[in-house]
Design a protein around this nucleic acid. Structure first.
Lengths: 215, 215
DNA sequence: TAGATTGTTAATCGATTAACAATC
DNA sequence: TAGATTGTTAATCGATTAACAATC
């Protein structure tokens, strides 16, 4: 099996940016990309790009840069973006239903195989080709379908208890969309993508820019 | 007007976490919280919490900690979470429609006042109490309604051109939900909340945990 | 009072940038 | 060849942690 190098934490989010950009470039027929090209497109320095890519087992070529298709393959392998990931959504509210139907997930290898909600009234509703299931069915489903990823689209007040149930069911990773901070054992990976928190950071940045005291 | 101190970049995301937690605690009637309490709940060290809060014009009290209601007010002020922010969503797909109906936004001060799409077929559709408008109406709407925040729920391929239109219309900040990296002038704040990118970081973390080479 | 907790300084750690020899 | 670009080392910068006097 391929060796996955341990990467400095700050590098991983940038690798996902390189991958997204290179996928776009290679689909447009671009064959070579330099560290300066990547830096310009992503608002970084070429030095940072080269440092980051030095952690990756793929060499560029002087005077030409990196071959897009080769680098794309290596980055996808390191990040797990070359595999299928069975995914469930918890929460059949506006957001959860939208995510269950979101084609972008499938396009990036996340196979949506279940939507769960604790509200009895929502159980049985159709979401595309799926049907909303009750939370009581979650443990058996995760186990038998070997679901690896759970997306939490529930209110902050319910997030930790839903996470606990997913963890007890044997899930491997959680995407937390709620404002709550989740506690999980080290064996389970957790990533946050919290729109409300990002919006609040955004309003802070707007306020700073409107305030003449900042440089 | 209140003085907004310039904060180290790494501190701001944590302030949003402190605020979310303290809002919950104060709504539960908790009156005092120590740096150790906050650290335990959020997976930090008490030292980090005290360093962060030292940037904030609010003093704790030895032996008791910080008063929740007071700290909540100060953090909300610094982050802009004590104001109303007029917000539009660009993109009336699954995700955009769900966000336009999402009550969580309103509860955090983001007043949803418009949904826009370039697809003629979607114009006129109802989204809660709103109606989908065409992109051609965006500049006049942002100007006359004094919209400050734009949420981009469009495919990566359309993200930059939509951002350019919002910026030309005079928007103050953008929340980018697409996988694309956005280029914007320094006068416009941009924050990313990219679920697909977070999911890919998650699959990397899962892969690492399953690989015995890591510590 | 005794003890817990803050605020702050200094030390450590990690991330970014600059610089340049190697190389295609 | 001459020149552009990599890979890597060293320097700088910023963030985190440890430690402890001040204080309630």
């Amino acid at each position: 099996m391929m060796q996955i190098p341990t990467l400095p934490p700050a590098v991983v989010p940038r690798l996902t940016k390189y991958l997204a950009l290179i996928q776009q470039l290679s689909s447009e027929g671009v064959q070579w990309v330099s560290s300066q090209d990547l830096a310009d497109a992503l608002g970084l320095t070429s030095s940072t790009v080269r440092q980051d890519l030095s952690h990756v087992d793929y060499s560029g070529i002087s005077k030409r840069g990196y071959e897009t298709t080769g680098l794309e393959k290596v980055l996808a392998g390191i990040l797990g973006a070359d595999r299928e990931w069975k995914t469930v959504v918890i929460g059949a509210g506006n957001l959860g239903m939208a995510l269950a139907r979101h084609e972008e997930f499938l396009r990036h290898g996340f196979t949506m195989c279940g939507v769960f909600d604790s509200d009895e009234k929502k159980i049985g509703r159709k979401v595309g080709r799926l049907t909303v299931r009750g939370m009581r069915d979650l443990p058996a489903f995760v186990g038998s379908e070997m679901v690896q990823v759970g997306v939490l689209a529930v209110p902050a007040s319910a997030a930790q208890s839903c996470a606990d149930l997913l963890i007890a069911s044997g899930i491997k990773g959680l995407l937390n969309l709620s404002l709550a901070h989740l506690i999980a054992p080290r064996t389970v990976a957790v990533m946050d993508s919290r729109m409300i928190a990002s919006l609040i950071e955004l309003t802070h940045a707007i306020t700073l820019r409107q305030n003449p005291s900042s440089p």
